[in-house]
Amino acid sequence: MSKTRIEVLDRREFLVASGAAVATLTALTSGALAREMKDANKLLQELTGGAKPTEGKVKLEMPEIAENGATVPVKISVDSPMTDKDYCESVTIIAPKNPTVYVATFKFTPDSGKAWVSTRMRLAQTQEVWALAKMSDGSFRIAKTNVKVTIGGCGG
C-alpha cells in the first residue's frame, strides 16, 4: 500500500521536475518537439560515431499502454550467437521525450550467453522508445516502439 503511494508521488514529482515535459503535455509546440528529437538524435550520433544503425535483430518489448510512467517494464533481446568472435557488446535505451533522454546501457560479454535484459524504466510521457545495440563487428542495430503513458487519476 505505502509502496504504491510513493510511486504515485514520485511520478508527480517527475512531471513537475521536467518543465519541458509538462510544457509538451499542455501545449505540444513543434519547436519543443524538434529540440527534444534533436537531443536524442545527437545522442544516437554520439553513440554510433555517425554510423547509421539498421533495423532488425533487436527486439524491444514494452507495453503499448503504461498506466504508471514511473515504472514501465522493458525487455530487450538481440539476435546474436554470443561467441568470442561474434557477440552483442551492449544495448542502450533512449527515451527521446524524457528530461534525460539517455536511460541506461547494459554491456554484455560472450559469457552472458544471450544478449537479453529485462528492467523497468521511467517514462515522462507518451513516446517512442529506442533500443540501440552495438555488435562486436562495430555495426549498430536499432529497434523502436511506441508506449502510451496514461496520466493517473490525480491529475498531472
Binding site: T71, V103, S112, S118, T119
Partner: peptide
C-alpha cells in the same frame, strides 16, 4: 562470476526506483 565481470550496466535517472534487472549467464 568467480571474480570475472560478465555484465555491467550504466544507469541514469530514467531507471525506475528500486531497480529491477534480469539477465542471463552461461555457466561453465
Amino acid at each position: 562470476f568467480n571474480g570475472k565481470p560478465f555484465l555491467t550496466a550504466e544507469w541514469d535517472t530514467g531507471i525506475s526506483a528500486n531497480p529491477y534487472t534480469a539477465f542471463t549467464h552461461r555457466v561453465s
